[in-house]
């Protein structure tokens, strides 16, 4: 399991959010936007560790739990895909508008345990969002980590999130390789076409001294995990994140349990060996 950090920055009452201003909105894909947030007095609302979550609300509409995908000196970012009423309200926001956030919640990727390892990041669709926070962390602490592979897939070239990172920023980093695939190409797409699990097998990684960080839709996680196990990866070395419906974010309200674990508090980061221990109810 990931490491736990419960230092909530929410001034005493963990269920009351703080107001933040949306200072930048990036349209990543037709249905994914990234929201950069800052307190009204220009500060970072809190400093999450990679993989941690924020309960973000369009005040008056509702709250939702989202992964914090990136942070800077005085801002944090979340990428939100339009799937329902709340996320639609997010997509209608304009720069300069105020929303609210509480957190950080949940455990985080085991950044200490990953030190000295070669890392393979595998993302599918919006699943690159939680992984991105760790990729950025590793780039900032580049000397602590070995070779980095980033394998990413989406339905189509238009659906690729974080294009600037994928095509410009990350390939420039030292000892880093970015491999992109899409389920269906288009007339201008020259990269790989195919599903992520098959592509991972094609890339034929050796498991030696490697750790895998895997996020995406449940079906993609399932088949990619099976592929990795076939390739000889130990289940302890494949780390993923879970998604459940959440309301409180602090392990009280009950709904995000899998067995005796609460995904909002004990997760969202689990390795495959830990997931095997939990009831099959994801």
């Amino acid at each position: 399991m990931g490491e736990i950090n419960h230092e909530c920055t929410c001034h005493g009452n963990p269920l009351v959010p703080q107001v933040v201003k949306v200072i930048k909105i990036t349209q990543e894909t037709p249905d994914v936007k990234t929201f950069r947030m800052q307190t009204p007095d220009g500060k970072k609302p809190f400093a999450p560790l990679p993989g941690q979550l924020g309960m973000i609300s369009v005040v008056g509409v509702g709250e939702g739990m989202f992964s914090i995908t990136a942070q800077g000196e005085d801002w944090i970012e979340s990428s939100i895909k339009k799937v329902g009423m709340l996320t639609e309200a997010f997509h209608e926001l304009a720069e300069g508008q105020e929303i609210a956030i509480r957190g950080p919640y949940g455990n985080h990727f085991p950044v200490e345990a990953l030190k000295g390892k070669d890392l393979i990041f595998i993302g599918g669709g919006i699943g690159l969002a939680p992984v991105r926070s760790l990729i950025r962390y590793c780039m900032e602490h580049r000397e602590d980590y070995g070779h980095i592979d980033i394998v990413y897939g989406s339905r189509s070239p238009e659906d690729l999130c974080f294009k600037e990172d994928l095509f410009q920023n990350w390939p420039k980093e030292k000892d880093t390789r970015v491999e992109i695939t899409v389920d269906r190409g288009n007339e201008t797409w020259e990269g790989n076409v195919g599903f992520v699990p098959a592509y991972v097998e094609e890339l034929a990684f050796s498991p030696e001294n490697k750790k895998v960080i895997l996020c995406g839709p449940p079906i993609m996680i399932k088949f990619t995990s099976e592929a990795l196990v076939r390739m000889g990866f130990a289940k302890e070395d494949v780390i993923t994140t879970l998604e459940m419906r959440m309301k409180c974010g602090i392990g009280k309200c009950g709904r995000c349990n899998i067995g005796s674990k609460y995904v909002c508090l004990d997760g969202p980061v689990f390795n495959l060996a830990e997931l095997d221990e939990l009831p099959d109810e994801k």
């Binding site: 799937v83 329902g84 009423m85 709340l86 996320t87 419906r245 309200c253 899998i258 109810e281």
Partner: peptide, 19 residues
């Protein structure tokens, strides 16, 4: 109060429901 017996209790925005 909410109830784990309700049909929407664990249903996620995209429609997936683990229970």
């Amino acid at each position: 109060w909410d109830s784990c017996m309700f049909s929407d209790y664990t249903r996620m925005a995209g429609g997936h429901d683990p229970r």
